[in-house]
């Protein structure tokens, strides 16, 4: 039974890494949001499983917050936003998916090499979770670096943040930190969304200005 528990936790964390790779691969905004939703669902399952495994009820709260905010509210609002901006059918040009994936693999290998020997003394499950979490963080960063579109950068950031939550959930014995970090990260996510959307609107205004110039030029 113990083995199966670890297996399931391992499976969920692995699925989270896999979903991070899917985020790297997907180049359409609506698809990206769907995958992010999946990411968040797996995260909340994973945290819930940790709660069960560690017998830590507060982690259920964390899982619930993750499920409600990240799997429901954020994807919903993001979808509304991109629909309102009329970019939901945009295909982002992602150059060199192969290279990006290769770098991603390298990053996963790196985090395994760094984390596994470094945390040799810790609980096996926590150890594994932290290694995976680092991989997810790095993949999220990679996505933010390689993408140009503001919305996909936001998603990259939030997947990164999911990795942090996973790490925090895995390291048992710091419940308060977990709660705070979750609340805090959601706050940050919204601030970042705000900033990025401001940028988008700026860009759209520019487009409008250009149109205005054209019309004026045509009249004179």
């Amino acid at each position: 039974m113990e083995l199966l528990t670890i297996d399931i936790a391992h499976m969920l964390a692995g699925a989270l890494v896999l979903t991070s790779f899917m985020l790297l691969y997907q180049d359409r905004l609506s698809g990206l949001i769907n995958i992010y939703t999946l990411h968040a669902v797996i995260l909340s399952l994973s945290v819930a499983w940790q709660a069960y495994y560690q017998d830590a009820p507060h982690l259920y709260v964390t899982a619930g917050i993750a499920a409600i905010f990240k799997a429901l509210i954020i994807p919903y609002s993001l979808r509304r936003i991109i629909e309102r901006l009329g970019v939901h059918r945009t295909v982002e040009v992602v150059g060199g998916v192969g290279i990006t994936m290769l770098i991603g693999i390298f990053l996963v290998a790196l985090s395994l090499v760094v984390m596994l020997p470094a945390t040799a003394a810790a609980d096996p499950l926590a150890r594994e979770d932290i290694a995976f979490a680092l991989a997810i963080v790095l993949l999220g960063l990679l996505m933010m670096v390689t993408r140009r579109n503001a919305v996909s950068q936001i998603i990259g950031f939030m997947s990164l943040e999911n990795g942090l939550v996973l790490a925090a959930a895995g390291a048992n014995g710091m419940p308060l930190v977990v709660e705070i970090s979750v609340a805090f990260s959601i706050l940050i996510a919204f601030i970042v969304i705000g900033i990025f959307l401001f940028r988008i609107r700026e860009r759209f205004d520019n487009v409008d200005l250009f149109e205005l110039d054209r019309v004026r030029g045509g009249r004179s």
Binding site: G14, V17, F21, G98, I105, V108, A109, L116, P124
Partner: peptide, 24 residues
């Protein structure tokens, strides 16, 4: 090639991950 490349990368990733539980 991207699609298959993703398959290749997943395969590679899978071999890497074998070590995670193996080592524990």
């Amino acid at each position: 090639p991207d699609f298959l490349g993703a398959g290749l990368m997943l395969g590679l990733l899978a071999t890497l991950l074998v070590f995670v539980t193996r080592s524990l």
